[in-house]
Simulated scan of single mutants.
Amino acid sequence: MDTTQDPRPLYRSALDQLEKLIAEAGPETLDRPTPCAEYDLRALLDHVVGGVHRFAYTGEGGLSLDVAAATGGVPDDGWPAALGRARARVTAAWAQDAKLDRPTSVPWGEVSGRDAVGGYVLETVVHAWDIARALDATDRLDERLGEAALAIALAVMPAEPRGGRVPFAPVQPAPAGADAYTRLAAHTGRAV
């Protein structure tokens, strides 16, 4: 990952995209399956919004593994507001430039704040694809974010081994000429 740049604007763009998708996820869609076999859309939204809170907690100085990445109790029509609260918290937690160079505890280890933000760009963009697939809305994904997240994934996620500290399924084949999101999904072990 390029650690000379500030990844927070990219993360804000990823959250913008996520916000638009979650606004489309009405109560009638929440039981739909997602590319994450263990999550229906409701459970995936819980995981994603909880992950934003977890990342906020690390920006506040906490250890990421001290908190569960789940929100619990969000009403079916409350996901946009839940993400809004999480977004406000994470934005405040990561507002200080000095935090980008501070050691930060995230689920995959201790890294610089800058690399932690990059990791959450990847997390947010991958799950945006998952949500978009469940909503049949992949045509509304920002290709620039897909390219950025793919670059991060290729730089920090080895193809092998998978499992343990690399909690992803084996890399899947992507069709020739696939867009960045499809290649990203395949690299993170999702069937495309």
Rank of each mutant, 00 (worst) to 15 (best):
Arg89Leu: 05
Pro107His: 01
Asp97Leu: 09
Ala95Phe: 00
Gly84Phe: 07
Leu100Arg: 03
Ala93Glu: 04
Thr104Phe: 06
Arg87Met: 05
Ala116Arg: 10
Arg85Ala: 14
Val117Ile: 15
Pro103Phe: 02
Ala93Tyr: 03
Leu100Ile: 01
Trp94Ile: 07
Gly109Trp: 02
Val111Met: 11
Glu110Asn: 12
Ala86Asp: 09
Val117Ser: 12
Gly113Glu: 01
Ala92Trp: 05
Gly109His: 04
Arg114Met: 03
Ala88Cys: 08
Val111Asn: 05
Arg87Ser: 09
Val117Asp: 12
Arg102Trp: 12
Glu110Thr: 15
Ala116Phe: 14
Ala86Tyr: 00
Ala92Cys: 00
Gln96Thr: 10
Val90Asp: 00
Leu100Ser: 04
Arg87Cys: 01
Ser105Glu: 11
Trp94His: 05
Leu100Ala: 02
Gln96Ala: 15
Ser105Gly: 11
Gln96Glu: 15
Arg87Val: 05
Asp97Tyr: 03
Arg85Cys: 00
Arg85Tyr: 11
Thr104Gly: 04
Pro107Trp: 00
Arg85Ile: 09
Gly113Ala: 06
Asp115Gly: 01
Val111Ser: 06
Ala98Thr: 14
Arg114Leu: 04
Pro107Leu: 01
Ala116Asp: 11
Lys99Tyr: 06
Pro103Glu: 02
Gly109Asn: 01
Ala93Asn: 02
Ser105Trp: 14
Ala86Arg: 02
Asp115Met: 13
Glu110Gln: 13
Ala93Phe: 00
Arg89Lys: 13
Thr91Ser: 13
Arg87Phe: 11
Asp115Tyr: 08
Arg87Gln: 12
Ser112His: 12
Gly84Met: 11
Val117Thr: 12
Trp94Ser: 05
Val90Arg: 05
Leu100Tyr: 05
Arg89Asp: 07
Ala93Cys: 04
Arg102Leu: 12
Asp115His: 08
Trp108Tyr: 14
Glu110Ala: 10
Pro107Glu: 03
Arg102Ala: 14
Gln96Phe: 03
